[in-house]
Amino acid sequence: MATYRLKLNGESISVDAPDDARLLWVLRDQLNLRGTKFGCGRGLCGSCTVLVGDRARKSCVTGMSNVDGQSVTTIEGLSADGSHPLQQAWIAEQVPQCGYCQAGQIMNAAALLRRSLRPSSGEIDAAMDRVLCRCGTYLRIRRAIERAVEEA
């Protein structure tokens, strides 16, 4: 058991967790932030994607020691009220079907837009290949990212 300090969605917090604990389950079970989803547990599907600093990280394989002292943003912290350009674009394009992977998709897209203001379609594909959608909403995800870029 160890104590970890992080800046979570803009707030400084400290949390006790086992040495081998993964960020995903600390977020979901201990901190009650359930927007970040469990999909595979092995960093393969990306439903659990969050931002660590400005980068997309798969929280199911991210140890707590790797985020100690860092800034972590989850879907709940992307905006206070769903007003982030990506969230608005996701609504405008009616992206989700079942919706389960969409927090991971949005957070992954947010990381993409933080490193590239105008990503090419190849860059969008390469980045978004990291998050799987079983319902097949990929065409709308791409349109929503393009819309967010246009409207930013």
């Binding site: 359930r34 927007g35 989850t74 879907i75 769903g82 969230q87 609504i91 009616q94 992206v95 919706g99």
Partner: peptide, 18 residues
């Protein structure tokens, strides 16, 4: 538009595991 999309994009939609 679907009624549940605004919750889904905020991570507020409640699935079974939530």
């Amino acid at each position: 538009p679907r009624v549940d999309v605004p919750d889904m994009v905020r991570g507020a939609a409640v699935f079974g595991c939530d």
